[in-house]
Amino acid sequence: MRSYQDPCGVARALDLVGERWALLVVRELMLGPKRFTDLHRDLPGSSQNVLSQRLRELEEAGVVRRRTLAPPVAVRVYELTEWGRGLEPVLLHLGRWGSQAPITTANQVGVTSLVLALRAMYVPGFEGSLELHVGEQVFRVTASVEVLEVTRGTAERPQAVLKGEPGALASVFFQGRELGAAIAAGELEVEGDPAAVSRLIDHLARSAA
């Protein structure tokens, strides 16, 4: 890897995760382990050779590790080390800062990006529990006055269940589209209390888009 040859902590961090695709690999692993094929699918702009190189560099730096899941799965996955997981607040702050830049691509937002954006763009004040279905993936959204947590799995007695594809959800969460309009268009589905979903939306900062 190239080095800035600068003792500053920022420069040393960029030595490790500043190469193209490196931080996006970290982003994709933030919600849990993934196979190489999963990473390549979720980072469609990367070539297999470049992705392999980034993973190898991140592994050598101690940010990522490989392991084999226990039988009967027995597949090799990549996951963040404890040190690598320390990049989470960096990614959340960077995502919130970057949300003020205009969107210059027509590509859809990914599932991991959407989930991390919920945490990054949360404005304190909402309290409640929702279940979020993003495509085929399920998450529980739990908010206190100060913190919003999004983790994989179903929610116990959620106030509402919200279902949709990433693009439709992002348009309502961050881009000002009305929840009712998305529901009427058949792009989103709400079970339970729609007002709970609206209250969450009211506590999400809008992006520049």
Rank of each mutant, 00 (worst) to 15 (best):
Q53Y: 13
E60R: 15
A70T: 06
R65N: 06
V50Q: 14
W97R: 10
V90I: 12
Y78T: 11
R66H: 02
T68G: 00
Q100Y: 15
L91M: 10
A74C: 01
R67V: 10
L92W: 07
R54K: 14
G45Q: 10
V75G: 00
L69W: 04
V63Y: 00
V63T: 03
L94Q: 09
W83A: 11
L51A: 10
E79S: 06
S47K: 10
S47W: 08
T68S: 08
L80E: 10
L80M: 09
P89C: 01
T68L: 02
R65T: 12
E79I: 07
E88W: 06
T68M: 07
A61S: 14
S99A: 15
G98L: 15
G95N: 03
E57R: 15
G86T: 04
A61W: 05
L80I: 02
V50A: 11
P71Q: 04
W97L: 13
L58A: 11
L91S: 03
L58I: 12
R65S: 08
L92I: 05
L80T: 05
R66N: 02
L94V: 13
R56W: 13
V73A: 11
A70R: 10
R65Y: 13
R67F: 15
E59Q: 15
L51E: 09
L58N: 07
S47A: 06
A74M: 11
L51K: 12
Q100D: 12
R54T: 04
